[in-house]
Computed example of a mutant assay.
Amino acid sequence: MGLFVTLALIVVACAAPPSPVSSDQPEAPEAAPAAAESSQEMRPYHFIVVSHGQASDPFWSVVKNGVDAAAKDMRVNVDYQAPGTFDMVAMAQLIDAAVASQPDGLVVSIPDADALGDSIRAAVEAGIPVISMNSGSDVAKELGVLNHVGQTEYEAGYGGGQRMAAAGVTKALCVNQEVGNVALDLRCQGFTDAMAEAGATVEILA
Rank of each mutant, 00 (worst) to 15 (best):
M74H: 12
W60T: 02
A69E: 10
V11I: 10
V78R: 12
V12H: 15
S38A: 13
V11M: 13
D57W: 12
S19A: 14
M74W: 08
P44D: 10
A70F: 03
D87G: 07
M74R: 08
N77W: 13
E30P: 12
H46C: 05
R43M: 02
V63N: 00
P20W: 00
S38K: 13
M74P: 07
F47C: 09
E30W: 05
A34N: 11
Y45R: 04
S23A: 12
P29S: 11
S61M: 04
V62E: 06
S61R: 13
Y80K: 07
G53F: 04
M42G: 02
Y80E: 03
E41T: 15
A55S: 11
D68S: 05
A36Y: 02
D68R: 05
F86D: 12
Q93T: 15
E41H: 12
E27W: 11
E27L: 15
F47I: 08
M91A: 06
M42S: 14
Y80Q: 06
E41P: 01
P17F: 02
A36E: 09
P17W: 03
P33K: 03
G66N: 01
P26Y: 08
P26A: 02
V63C: 00
A55N: 08
S39H: 11
A28F: 06
A92W: 00
E37R: 14
A28T: 14
D68F: 06
S61Y: 09
A35G: 09
P20R: 05
A34M: 14
A90Y: 01
A82D: 09
A69S: 11
A28V: 11
E27P: 15
A31M: 14
P17H: 02
Q54H: 13
A69L: 12
A35F: 06
K64N: 14
M91N: 04
M88P: 09
M88E: 03
Q93I: 07
D57E: 11
I48W: 02
D68H: 02
I48F: 00
V78K: 09
Q54N: 10
F47G: 01
V76W: 01
Q40H: 01
A69M: 08
W60M: 07
A35Q: 11
K72Q: 13
M42Q: 10
I48V: 08
F86V: 13
S23W: 05
V12F: 15
V11Y: 09
P83T: 04
A32P: 01
N77S: 15
H46N: 14
D57A: 15
Y45L: 13
K64Q: 11
A16V: 11
P26F: 04
V76P: 06
H52R: 00
A92V: 05
V76D: 04
V50G: 01
P29Q: 13
S19V: 12
V67N: 08
M88I: 04
V11C: 12
D24F: 14
M74G: 03
Q93L: 12
F47Q: 02
R75D: 05
A15V: 05
S51M: 05
A31Q: 15
P33S: 07
V62T: 09
A70R: 08
C14A: 14
S19Y: 07
W60A: 00
P83K: 10
V62S: 10
S39W: 04
P33H: 03
P17E: 00
V62C: 01
Q40R: 05
P44W: 05
Q25A: 13
A36H: 04
V89H: 03
A71T: 12
S38H: 10
A34C: 13
R43T: 04
H52L: 00
P18C: 10
A35Y: 03
V62H: 04
